[in-house]
């Protein structure tokens, strides 16, 4: 499903050159749940953004669901990302001045679906994430847990094959973390491929995790 082959990624500014990733190769099968472990700055987020097609590797290949996304031109990579990937950010990155419903609808707008199909999908994910009762509330008025549920709903609304979560439980208490893990388990049961970057130990011993990859200074150490 997801293949990284000899990937290097470096960021160049006027002042310096940062090697974020060095010679990373990994393989994720469809339906697997993979954890990316490592301290901050180890390169976890970089790998996730490469797989989502948000950035391109300096050298090496990234292949997702048979498509070489490292070589895809912009409109096609955006289209691919929209269809196949749901991203849950560490800081959720919701648009605060939009309502819950409108935030969730955002990935659907470029698809230009009929109004019925669009509404159906939005209602489905809102129910799944138990946030229907706050549909018209502005996101800036929501609590942390509610915002996270909106972020999850938004990631699911396009019915993606892959869910990518970057430090999803960093801002949550124990109860909400557990709820999140439950949701991930449900998704795995449905056959969704999961990639979770985290240094939360709650995840390390979960039975449904298939692979654990540890990173340090941009290099895979396990």
């Amino acid at each position: 499903m997801i293949v990284l082959k000899n990937v290097y990624k470096c960021y160049e500014t006027e002042a310096q050159r940062i090697d974020a990733l060095r010679d990373i190769s990994l393989h994720v099968k469809a339906g697997e749940c993979v954890l990316l472990k490592g301290a901050s700055g180890s390169g976890k987020s970089t790998i996730l953004s490469l797989i989502a097609g948000l950035s391109k590797p300096t050298t090496g290949d990234v292949v997702v669901d048979g498509k070489r996304i490292s070589k895809l031109m912009e409109p096609f990579s955006a289209h691919f990302r929209r269809e196949n990937i749901g991203f849950i950010f560490q800081r959720y990155h919701l648009i605060p001045t939009l309502s819950v419903r409108d935030n969730i609808a955002l990935p659907l707008i470029p698809e230009n679906l009929t109004a019925q199909v669009m509404e159906k999908r939005i209602q489905e994910v809102m129910q799944l994430c138990a946030i229907s009762h706050k549909a018209s509330a502005l996101c800036r008025h929501l609590s942390g847990g509610e915002q996270q549920r909106v972020a999850i709903a938004r990631a699911l609304v396009n019915e993606p094959k892959i869910i990518i979560a970057d430090e999803p439980t960093a801002n949550l208490d124990a109860v909400l973390s557990e709820q999140f893990i439950e949701t991930m388990h449900d998704l795995k049961k449905r056959g969704v491929t999961l990639l979770i970057a985290t240094h939360d130990s709650q995840f390390f011993n979960l039975p449904f995790v298939d692979q654990q990859i540890e990173l340090k200074n941009g290099v895979m150490i396990s």
């Binding site: 989502a52 409109p75 955006a78 990935p107």
Partner: peptide
Amino acid sequence: KREIGILKALGWSMDD
């Protein structure tokens, strides 16, 4: 800037 970043991350292309 953040809003545009979010939209792009959600799959909006430059065209959109």
